[in-house]
Amino acid sequence: MIHDKDYIIRIVKQFSEFLSKMILGGKNEGDLSELDRVFDTNMRDTFKMSFEELALKSSAEMIDLVGTKDTAHHIPYFELLGHLFYFKNKENPSPDYASKAKAFYEIYLQKSGIFSMQIVSRINELKA
């Protein structure tokens, strides 16, 4: 059971790192179809649904979804959700994506107790 939890958190962290690289580097690096395939695979592995299905849920529903996970995994999930909606907002600007990214980043900062200038900057960017 512990091994399964370690695997899940590793998948979440790898997906979060992948999104961070996509945000910083943009989609210009690498084969676009390969990046899309990796993104879709990570979505299915992490959330058991496509991004489109996840995006239809309200922030409260996603918070409840994270709440069903192991408590030790909440912080990485909120960071991942922030990265996910920030990335998708950069790709296709949407007030809904921006507000979800901001909300999840704020929850991440609050729960983690970490001060991340990069995330604070993204929150400020999303407010503008």
Rank of each mutant, 00 (worst) to 15 (best):
S33F: 05
P76I: 08
S116N: 12
N28L: 01
D96S: 08
N89H: 14
V12E: 04
F85I: 14
K5H: 13
N124P: 02
S59H: 03
T68Q: 08
A98L: 09
E61P: 05
F115P: 01
I107E: 10
S112W: 13
A98I: 15
E91Q: 00
E53M: 08
D64A: 03
F47I: 13
N42W: 05
R44C: 00
L84K: 02
F87V: 04
S58Y: 09
E125H: 12
H83D: 14
Y86T: 00
P95W: 08
H3M: 07
F47K: 07
L19H: 00
Y7F: 15
I123A: 10
L84N: 02
D36E: 12
A60C: 02
L24Q: 01
T46L: 06
M62F: 04
E61I: 06
I23G: 00
K111Q: 15
E29F: 07
Y77M: 08
Q110P: 00
F47Q: 06
Y77F: 13
D6A: 04
I8V: 11
E52S: 06
H3K: 14
D96W: 11
P93N: 12
L24S: 03
I9E: 15
K100N: 13
Y108G: 02
G26P: 00
N28E: 03
F87C: 05
K13V: 10
K13R: 15
F78E: 01
N92D: 06
E79T: 03
T41E: 11
I23A: 02
D70K: 09
F39Y: 07
L19M: 06
D31M: 03
H3E: 12
F104M: 11
Y77D: 06
R122N: 13
R122Q: 15
E79V: 03
M49K: 07
L81H: 04
S33I: 09
V12P: 01
G30K: 08
R44F: 05
Y105Q: 11
S20A: 14
K21H: 12
M117T: 11
T71D: 11
T41C: 06
N92K: 05
A103V: 10
R10E: 15
D45S: 09
Y86P: 01
D40Q: 10
S59Q: 12
M43N: 05
G25Y: 01
G67N: 08
M22R: 02
L32H: 04
S16E: 14
A72F: 02
K57R: 05
I23L: 04
E17L: 09
H74G: 04
Y77I: 03
D96Y: 05
S20P: 09
M49P: 02
P95Y: 08
D45F: 13
L84G: 04
M1Y: 07
E17F: 08
G113Y: 12
K127R: 08
F115C: 04
K27I: 01
D96R: 09
I119H: 01
K21N: 14
T41V: 15
M117Y: 05
L109A: 14
R44A: 10
Y108R: 02
D40Y: 10
K102Y: 11
S50F: 07
M62C: 03
F51Y: 14
K13M: 12
K57Y: 04
A103S: 09
D6F: 14
Y108W: 15
M43I: 06
K88P: 00
S94G: 08
P93V: 15
K102I: 12
G26D: 00
K69C: 06
D6S: 06
